[in-house]
């Protein structure tokens, strides 16, 4: 089982799920594109067929105009193989089935992606905010439209201080 090669693994995945597209980036890395409805099947396939699959991370990328990409990364030490699964999502609050029951280690990664990007994970046991303070919950700060300049200063409730006028230069003070 441990001597599965990247091409064998890609071949058996394609035979089981002919609609996925697989791109080999290097000898050690595969990029698998799937549709949101298939994510559970493909992740289950990885859990069953890729020896000792370590769930490295799940994260979102904002592609602007309500387009998002989710990337799941798995690393197999015996096969020396890195699998990136990529899913395109669209919509105001896009949703995708959770995989945290297959890989418990992804539970917190999904929780973080939920609070940072507003992506719903259907069937996730616990989508409470993980890292954010209360006042940022529901604002999805890693989206590109979340502004970090002074335009949102009023939200903080702090008094807005006008910049102090600069002191005039005194004559001869430059010496």
């Amino acid at each position: 089982m441990s001597d599965i090669s990247p091409s064998d693994f890609a071949g058996s995945l394609i035979r089981s799920y002919p609609t996925v597209t697989i791109e080999s980036k290097s000898g050690q890395s595969l990029m698998i594109s799937v549709t949101p409805s298939m994510i559970r099947d493909v992740v289950q396939f990885i859990a069953d067929n890729l020896p000792m699959a370590l769930p490295e991370s799940v994260f979102g990328v904002d592609l602007e105009d309500d387009n998002y990409e989710l990337i799941y990364i798995f690393w197999s030490h015996p096969a020396r193989l890195l699998c990136q699964i990529r899913v395109q999502l669209k919509g105001e609050t896009p949703s995708i089935p959770t995989v945290s029951d297959i890989f418990p280690g992804l539970e917190w990664h999904e929780r973080e992606t939920h609070e940072m990007f507003g992506i719903e994970f259907e069937g996730h046991p616990d989508l409470r905010p993980l890292l954010l303070p209360d006042e940022l919950v529901g604002k999805y700060p890693l989206r590109k439209r979340f502004k970090t300049d002074r335009s949102r200063l009023a939200e903080s409730g702090l008094p807005i201080v006008k910049p102090r006028p600069r002191p005039k230069k005194e004559e001869g003070s430059g010496k």
């Binding site: 000792m52 418990p104 280690g105």
Partner: peptide, 28 residues
């Protein structure tokens, strides 16, 4: 045990102490 640890996402010395030589310095 090692299988649980890997499913939780543990790596490095925590997994190596189960007897699995998972180390990116060699593997990657």
């Amino acid at each position: 045990n090692a299988e649980d640890g890997i499913k939780w996402g543990l790596s490095g010395p925590n997994i190596k102490s189960c007897g699995i030589p998972m180390d990116l310095r060699k593997d990657w």
